[in-house]
Design a protein around this nucleic acid. Structure first.
Lengths: 195, 195
DNA sequence: TGACTGACAAAAAATAAAATTTGTCATTTG
DNA sequence: CAAATGACAAATTTTATTTTTTGTCAGTCA
């Protein structure tokens, strides 16, 4: 990842950060390493991000947007889905995506887990986005509720075990799919009934 | 905590372990410290527990039994409760107990969190016990289900955010009670309907 | 003139050396 | 002889020391 053009951009820096984390792992990646990958002085990076924390947060935000939110937005928009089934498809996708990246992109998933742990703001924005999608699906799907947003948030929290990174080690269990089905069966009734 | 009688017992050792953890914290407590508190050589402790890990597991098991399982067993037995309300009271108690000890017995809660993290066996036994209670409540309460134990487990997992130690930092939020209510409202329907 | 460099102090992390803790066991004690 | 001790090696942790990294900024360069 050498910078090709002559002006260094945030995008290039974030791309180099991802590459370096994939190569060395989260714990061993320094701003200096990222600068080396770009063949610039580390001072240049501080022109674009005011701290290491901010750089890693930006990288995580982009990773979440691209790998999680974008595919979820597709499911949200999907007009072939409707009502409770739409909510199910959405949460199922969320759960599968988290599980997929926990396995297949371990280093960046570790970045996401660590940053989540340290930046309440970022994670609350991420959750806000998902709750927004769910609220939208519920309203469009004719799932009447006095407080659609609260119901949406409840669905998210009731399935936390299956998408919160603190539970990632439990996702290796062969029973995990059956457990999700059983939790879903419970929730589904609550969505069908007007709460 | 000096040993009063002349034979050292497991119970004395566990009591001294708790005391020492409360005094020095989980990270700073060594087997040597526990032995000092009992005024015996640390070798004596190894006559009763074959490793530090086993000692801490035993202490955690006892703590869980006394602080969590025993009060839950009371709620389970409570004949003034019935059906969905009984399940609610049980889970509510579980949630409140965990929250209570996370605040009021920080050091031992940290022990429980750490041991949970490292001993899948202990935690699975603990969960098994709770799921057993819930299954019992559901069967006695006329909550028909094709798979009562699976339903019981689903209730437990759907409320994980409110009792799993990995989420303890979220329990400080002033919204936590409202969030639990909303999740419960969702679940309740699923319990009323035969799944 | 605005993007970048490179030198710098302060903070943090890695390494090395010293001290403690863990776990065993032959010996002692009551 | 059952229970506990204390001496011991190996493993781990702590502390001290060195090195790297972070973050700033005056100065360079195109």
């Amino acid at each position: 990842m050498e910078k090709s053009s002559d002006v260094l951009t945030k995008e290039q820096i974030i791309a180099a950060t991802e590459e370096t984390i994939r190569r060395y792992g989260m714990a061993k990646t320094s701003v200096t390493d990222v600068a080396k990958a770009l063949d610039v002085s580390h001072g240049s990076i501080y022109r674009h991000f005011k701290s290491k924390t901010e750089l890693f947060e930006a990288a995580t935000e982009q990773w979440l947007e691209e790998k999680i939110i974008a595919p979820l937005a597709d499911v949200c928009r999907d007009s072939s889905l409707h009502g409770v089934g739409h909510v199910h498809a959405y949460i199922q996708t969320l759960v599968r995506l988290k599980r997929h990246y926990a396995r297949e992109d371990e280093a960046l998933f570790a970045m996401y887990a660590k940053v989540s742990d340290e930046s309440a703001e970022l994670i609350s924005k991420h959750i806000g986005c998902i709750v927004g999608h769910l609220t939208d699906i519920m309203l469009r799907g004719g799932l009447k509720s006095d407080h659609p947003e609260r119901s949406a948030r409840a669905v998210f929290y009731a399935t936390a075990r299956f998408h919160h990174p603190a539970h990632a080690y439990e996702w290796k269990s062969p029973a995990i799919d059956a457990e999700f089905s059983d939790v879903w069966a419970l929730i589904e009734q609550g969505l069908k009934t007007n709460d």
